[in-house]
Amino acid sequence: METKLLHIFRNTPLGRETLLQSIYFCNITRSSMVIYIPEYTKFLMYFDNDVVQVDLDPSYLLYPETSRTHALDLTKAHGIDASFFEPRQFTASTLPDIPVDFDFMCSPRSISDLSSKISLGHIGTRVRRIIKTAQFPVLLTSPCYKEWTSILVFFGGSVNSVKAVRLGLHISRLTGLPLDLFTQVEGSQTMDDYKDRLKQAGLEADFDKRVRDWKVFADNGFEENLYHVPHQALAVLGAYGHGLVKDILFGSKMEVIQSVLSNNLLIVGPRYSAKG
């Protein structure tokens, strides 16, 4: 089965960049694309054990008469045959339900707040919640269209980052692009510990075939080392399930990475179950 990507279309220049990003992703991973052109500023996503209400910022509803043609023009021009999603189920009359059986979802870093506020260093609460509950990884696009020619996985040894490696390998298999690993050694861990984790997950064989480079950093600050992430790379990382409080107290790697890197990020949430 081929993979499906959900894209929520915003009929503004920023939305065009995001859509181009999705198109690139779909083309390179041979996924099909489902576009949702919102008619209401809110929709619900019913996940396994949670329901998320997404409140879109009002710019999603701008110029409805041209949005479909704009989206079609862009996708056609890049050889993607996108299908449009028409909500058929409504929880309330202005509150459609969006299915969640997608393999990827594309989202700008924030979808609830006005786009003028979007800058690096801010992931909207709704996007955060989607990442936390979704079974699919979320593609956080760079603010401006940017192609990627390699994949970089942040591997810190945790369960989620193993999932990220799995996804990275999967995408590398789909696209044939080289894969890099980025590890910031923490505490008393040694390289063998990291290798052991991968071996336990049964990723070793594939790993040797696919991985081009394992960037290991033991010194300097994490943020400083992020400079070594290639300019044209898709960054894959695992997010953690903990809430806002812990994030504020302990800081979150995801937050740090996304505030420093302007690359496209593919974020794997704690509920993601690897299929590849």
């Binding site: 500023t41 619900l44 329901v51 209400q53 929880t91």
Partner: peptide, 26 residues
Amino acid sequence: VNEGAGHGIPEVIYAVSRYGGLIRLR
């Protein structure tokens, strides 16, 4: 809170019958 008007009971019945009773916290 970004919710529609109405009294909400159809919403409860809908959630119960289709989504195993998932209702938003708000």
